Simulated scan of single mutants.
Amino acid sequence: MTVARLVVLGLSSKRIARTLGISDLTVRKHRENLLGKLELCDTAQLAVCWPLIAQALQDAAAHDATD
């Protein structure tokens, strides 16, 4: 989730890696996995879809908390 948020903000993999204290390769793998799981072609699609994705995740977390 953190990597996704930073990608949506337009940060490069190198910048995200420095910010989070992880390797550039790890960030690239997270980015690749994220796009694959969401069936998106690129980070531009992620940025456009992010508000809906974030809302769905919040709704799911709220639902889980009430169960």
Rank of each mutant, 00 (worst) to 15 (best):
R15S: 07
R31V: 09
Q45T: 10
V48Y: 06
L34Q: 13
A56F: 08
L35E: 00
G21Q: 08
S23L: 07
H63C: 03
C49G: 03
L40R: 10
V27S: 00
T66Q: 03
V48Q: 08
G21E: 07
R5L: 13
L6R: 09
K29W: 10
A62N: 05
L57I: 14
A60T: 10
A47Q: 05
I16D: 04
A60R: 10
D42Y: 15
K37N: 12
K37Y: 13
A61M: 05
R28L: 04
C41N: 12
V7F: 01
E32D: 12
S12D: 07
R18K: 15
V27L: 01
V27G: 04
L40M: 14
T43V: 10
V3L: 01
V48P: 00
A61R: 09
R5S: 14
E39K: 15
D59T: 11
A61V: 02
L46C: 09
L9N: 00
I53Y: 06
Q55A: 05
G21R: 05
L11M: 13
T26R: 08
I22L: 12
R15L: 11
D64R: 13
Q58M: 06
T2M: 09
K37P: 04
L46H: 00
L52G: 09
C49L: 01
T66K: 05
G36M: 00
L20E: 13
S12K: 08
D59F: 01
D59I: 13
N33C: 08
R28Q: 04
K37S: 08
H30P: 01
V48W: 06
L52W: 11
K37V: 01
R28M: 03
D64T: 15
C41T: 11
W50R: 00
V48C: 08
L34M: 15
Q45C: 15
L38M: 03
D42M: 15
L57A: 14
L57Q: 15
A62S: 02
Q55S: 05
Q58S: 00
S13L: 03
L38A: 07
G21C: 10
H30S: 01
K37W: 09
E39I: 00
T43F: 12
L38P: 08
L46S: 06
A54P: 01
R15M: 09
A60G: 06
G21L: 00
L40F: 13
Q55K: 10
L38S: 04
P51L: 12
S23W: 05
G36D: 05
